[in-house]
Design a protein around this nucleic acid. Structure first.
Ligand code: FES
Ligand code: FES
Lengths: 148, 148
DNA sequence: TTATTAAAAGACCTTTTTGTCTTTTAGTGA
DNA sequence: TCACTAAAAGACAAAAAGGTCTTTTAATAA
């Protein structure tokens, strides 16, 4: 609920894709949807958009599926959120002022700004790849998650 | 963008109402909408819902408008968010797992949980009233905000 | 080359959110 | 009582989000 459904589905799908990629497999839309507990057609649409935006790769036909280009740098969570929800989600004023201004702060600014910055550091510091590795570690250590 | 539009409009409207109340005035929907830069009819609808939910009072007719019952305890921001957006907004897992579980954490949990808790402390510790007082202080000290 | 597979594209639909408007009800003051 | 004012209620509508389906395109393997 911090992010919208599309972002949530994308996060789960991309982590799954990366995890499979580490094992030299390219998961298809069907598998991804199943594993992440998201609707198939919607998941496919979301991933297709990400491919068009160049954040992800795909291959058609037999043995095809989604994968990350190993030549490219890791996909930062921040860039994913920017692509799906836009900048305001990360930098916007919690009170709805058009711009968050230190000189004209809203009544939440002093308390909210540090929280927002912590969140910004989180999404700027982590990538799908770094997060997938953690998830993998968690899983092999006996804490598999269920989404639905 | 942290909260949805309805919550944003409600926050701004309620702070304005409380500020006027401190000055023994009951603002009407029209004035509130104008001052907070929100659409009049929508603002009215939102406030009416809050009145029905008992979080706010209103008086019809000449000299009427919206006001807070001085006999009641302050309206905590948390209760406002619960009334408009529901619990998940505050406690939900950022990865979309049905429940955020320490024992089965999502790959964001360790980093996200403290941020979410800071946010929970913010909304549990502040009320429309406490926030309005800050806003008032800011304004008299020469930093009036514009919303739109 | 052909059958099969899976993504791409885009039309279509449903639900939720956001926003508008009209009519009714309840107060106030003259 | 009457005129006026302002919220209440609820219908209506536009836009965005969420979701489904069909057709086309591209890849692979047999
Ligand atoms: S001005 Fe509102 S969060 Fe900074
Ligand atoms: S399990 Fe995802 S935030 Fe706690």
């Amino acid at each position: 609920m911090m992010f919208n459904r599309e972002t949530e589905y994308a996060l789960r799908a991309l982590v799954h894709i990366q995890l499979q990629n580490y094992d030299d497999r390219r998961p298809g839309g069907k598998e991804i949807a199943q594993e992440t507990g998201a609707p198939y057609y919607y998941t496919a649409k979301i991933l297709q958009r990400l491919v068009r935006q160049g954040l992800l790769c795909s291959l058609k036909g037999k043995g095809g599926g989604f994968y990350f280009d190993k030549g490219k740098p890791d996909l930062m969570i921040r860039d994913l959120i920017l692509a799906i929800e836009g900048e305001k989600k990360i930098t916007g004023c919690v009170f709805g002022l058009t711009k968050c201004d230190e000189k004209h702060p809203c009544p939440f600014h002093d308390q909210y700004a540090p929280i927002r910055e912590a969140m910004a550091r989180l999404v700027s510091g982590e990538s799908i790849q770094s997060v997938a590795k953690k998830y993998f570690l968690n899983t092999v250590n006996g804490s598999p998650d269920k989404v639905k």
